[in-house]
Each structure stands twice: as C-alpha cells, then as structure tokens.
C-alpha cells in the first residue's frame, strides 16, 4: 500500500518561506512513520532533514507534529494513519531546517529548575534508604525522555504573550526531584517554580498529558507541585 505524506519543508539556505511537499511512500500497515520518512530521504529526496536516534521511543529525538498532534514518528504505525498524513515540526520552537527545531531554549528551561538531586546531608557509605512506595511516586515522571512534545503542545507555551512559561517537561523533571524522598531542594527551586512563568503558568489544559508518548500524568504532576508550594506558604 502507499501512503502520502505532506511534509513541511524549509531550508534557510534557499527558501524565503516554508512550503509543503507531498511524497508517496510504499509502506505496510506495521511500518513506522519514521521508516517512511527515512524512505523519502533515502529514495526520493536526500535533502529532507529530521532527527532520529533509537527508533523506538526511548531517546526522544524525533518529536514532530503528525496530523496536528505532537508525537514520535517512531511510535506511530502507518496503519494508524489515514491515506495522507500531515508532517510538521514541533510548534513553539524555531525551525532550523524542515522538521528540525532549535531545542536550546527547551534545555535551558529544563536546566533552570535545577534538575539534580539537592541534598545537604552527606550520603552514607552505602545507599540511602527509600521505600518502594516512595519510588512508586516517581515512577511515571522518571519515564520522561525530554522529547518536548508536551511543551510544544502547551497552549500557554504556544501563546507569544506567555511563551516564557518554563513548560511542562521542565516541571515534570522538577516534580521528579521535589517528590524524591532523598531531595532537599524545595527552597532552592521555589524561586523558579513559584511564579507565573513557573508552575503557576500551567492553566490545567491537559494538552501535555494527552500527547505524552510515555503516558506520564503531566498535568497532575504539575498540580502536585502547585499544591506543595501552596502548602509550604500556608505553613509559614
């Protein structure tokens, strides 16, 4: 069978404006959409640019917009698409070429939440103890692969007026550390989180949760950060 892919193209070296180009690709229903994109690149048009690495939803390289919804083409099978699919780069970020966007601001914001264990007490000679329940609390958040699909899908990030919102991916990582029983970094992270560009930027619109390729309850996790901040303020 053949599928038609209508692909966003933009090469800053020669294009003034982006345009769409349609490619017909032979593919079976269990082929990955990523396989189709590779076939285009290898067999039809070697100039097409997109990122990929692991090919099975673990590395987070190939986030893009598929029929208007952010996702990973390595996780989408041709059989789940219609006869023609629309392939575009992730919104929110600047397009560098074709489906490749500049993720520098994404990683900068990620970094701003201090994504590492903060602990004042020196570690023991062996491991710190943590109960299975304490680990279970982090179980979904640590599945995050930093694909940026959530942040790209967030209407708050998409709105130019509120685009300085740190975004759901950074907040998921903040959740992962704040709710880690070994972490003591709440106070250090509050200045980044307790503001409208931080956790309060979230308007509970659920887009992040809908698109997450790893089924992380993103919105709920952000809600728990908000509650933690609220309770800390009430307590003081």
């Amino acid at each position: 069978m053949a599928i038609r892919l209508k692909v966003f193209r933009f090469d800053p070296e020669k294009d003034e404006e982006p345009y769409y180009k349609v490619y017909a690709v032979n593919a079976g229903p269990t082929d990955r959409l990523l396989d189709c994109l590779n076939r285009i690149r290898w067999e039809q048009d070697s100039t097409l640019a997109f990122r990929m690495s692991c090919g099975h939803g673990v590395c987070g390289s190939d986030g893009m917009r598929i029929d208007g919804i952010c996702g990973l083409p390595c996780q989408r099978l041709v059989g789940s698409l219609g006869p023609e699919a629309l392939i575009e780069p992730l919104p929110v970020f600047r397009v560098i070429k074709d489906l490749i966007v500049d993720l520098t601001p994404f990683f900068e914001r990620y970094r701003s939440i201090k994504p590492y264990l903060i602990s004042a007490s020196p570690p023991p000679d062996d491991e710190r103890r943590q109960s299975p329940d304490e680990v279970r609390l982090l179980e979904s958040a640590v599945r995050c692969i930093l694909c940026a699909c959530c942040t790209a899908s967030c209407p708050v990030n998409q709105n130019p007026e509120t685009a300085d919102y740190v975004g759901p991916a950074a907040l998921v990582r903040a959740f992962r550390y704040l709710f880690d029983s070994r972490d003591q970094g709440f106070v250090e992270r509050v200045p980044v989180l307790d503001r409208k560009q931080g956790a309060w930027g979230c308007q509970t619109l659920w887009k992040c949760t809908e698109v997450c390729p790893k089924q992380i309850p993103v919105t709920k996790s952000i809600g728990q950060i908000k509650r933690r901040i609220h309770e800390a303020k009430k307590g003081t």
Binding site: Y116, L117, P123, E127, R128, R129, Q130, S131, P132, E134, V135, L138, V142, R176, Y177, D180, R182, D183
Partner: peptide, 9 residues
C-alpha cells in the same frame, strides 16, 4: 544512588 538515580527498591 547518591547522584539521585531512581533505583527500584
């Protein structure tokens, strides 16, 4: 573990 890896317990 000290760096923060979320090991199963």
């Amino acid at each position: 573990e000290h760096m923060g890896v979320p090991f199963s317990r």
